[in-house]
């Protein structure tokens, strides 16, 4: 195991239309998991090879014990990755972030305009608060990544977000296609998502207008099958991390990642009563995954030349959509069925 994904609270102070976790709305600090239980789980995972912890949620900075947790991770010299909406980052928090082994700090920003961002994030004023957080990080020279999730409402915002990311000094900008999971499902049902052709057009536009250069690195998070050779050579192949991680949900339940929040049958225990190593070594779900990936991948994934590296893009998403951990990744399958899957990458 290389990483634990800690979904520190199942509450969030924003209400994003596309969130795949669908947390409950709250602006109050949340007790969430007892810090001692988390520390115990992290220490136990250390003996399994743990190198990093991803703190996410809900909104991780709503977690009442976040400062104590960061201090513990610093003591244990564990790398920290954080995914946040950035609205709760203040001067004190910046100091805490500076003193831990911060490997990546990802802040969600869906538009360069207040109106569009606030509309997507479901709370008025969220753009200003996120921007304030970003400016604070920038002033304190903390390296951060901006994450933009693409849907119909913000497709025109890409140039503005790139410009803003450069202005703020972000290390990278990750552009994520929306996934039909959690609240994201409704975006698909209302057909506010971008079709594959549109996503590919935007990817080519970004590649052409903003070729790799010093400074901001732009990561268009499409499955590797659609990426250019140049991009694969430069950035490598992103793999579904499912073989090397475990997720701990806001109530302590242990799952293959955050998917347990919406798909209960992928929960394998709870850190309050179960041992992480016991689950890591004996869970029938994990044993089956280790035996069967990539060999049992179905549909277009079975025939893709990248299947050993990519492992089917996101197995959690495949399961959430179909109830099958080996179902093809929806974007790749859709592209194959509509004749858009690159033939040179299919056997």
């Amino acid at each position: 195991m290389t990483s634990l994904y800690l979904y520190l609270t199942d509450h969030c102070n924003l209400c994003c239309s596309h969130c795949w976790i669908s947390p409950k709305f709250s602006e109050q600090k949340q007790n969430g998991l007892p810090l001692d239980s988390l520390k115990k789980a992290i220490s136990e995972a250390g003996s399994l090879g743990l190198q990093s912890v991803k703190l996410t949620g809900g909104e991780p900075f709503l977690y009442r014990h976040i400062v104590g947790l960061l201090a513990f991770l610093a003591e244990e010299q564990i790398d920290v990755l954080i995914e946040t909406n950035g609205t709760l980052i203040n001067r004190d928090m910046v100091e805490h972030l500076k003193s831990c082994n911060l490997d990546q700090l990802s802040i969600s920003l869906d538009a360069a305009t207040e109106k569009v961002h606030d509309q997507i994030r479901g709370v008025k004023g969220s753009f200003r608060r996120t921007l304030k957080g970003l400016e604070l990080l920038s002033r304190h020279d903390l390296n951060f990544q901006i994450i933009m999730t693409l849907q119909g409402r913000n497709r025109q915002e890409i140039p503005g977000v790139i410009k803003l990311s450069e202005k703020l000094g972000a290390g990278s900008l990750k552009i994520n296609p929306l996934i039909p999971c959690g609240r994201g499902k409704e975006v698909f049902e209302h057909k506010h998502n971008l079709k594959l052709e549109e996503l590919l057009q935007l990817y080519y536009m970004v590649q052409k207008r903003w070729p790799p250069k010093k400074g901001l690195s732009i990561i268009f998070d499409l499955p590797v099958a659609f990426l250019s050779i140049e991009e694969i050579k430069q950035k490598g192949i992103k793999q579904c991390p499912i073989m090397n991680i475990l997720g701990v949900l806001g109530n302590g339940d242990i799952s293959i990642c955050g998917i347990g929040q919406t798909v209960h049958d992928l929960r394998m225990g709870n850190i309050r009563r179960d041992s992480i190593s016991e689950i890591w070594q004996n869970s029938s779900i994990l044993k089956d995954l280790r035996r069967s990936l990539p060999g049992k991948l179905k549909g277009v994934c079975e025939h893709c030349i990248f299947k050993f590296q990519c492992l089917g893009a996101c197995r959690a998403n495949a399961y959430a959509l179909t109830g099958d951990l080996y179902a093809p990744y929806f974007l790749c399958q859709e592209s194959f069925e509509s004749g858009l899957f690159p033939p040179s990458r299919y056997i």
Binding site: I229, I232, K233, P294, I305, F306, K307, F308, Q309, P342, S344, R345, I347
Partner: peptide, 22 residues
């Protein structure tokens, strides 16, 4: 092994081992 041309170059892929080279 599988040989697939793409652009000016080509992929080599071994379905048994997963080894891949462009």
């Amino acid at each position: 092994i599988v040989y697939k041309e793409e652009g000016d170059g080509a992929f080599l892929f071994d379905p048994a081992t997963g080894n891949l080279k462009y």
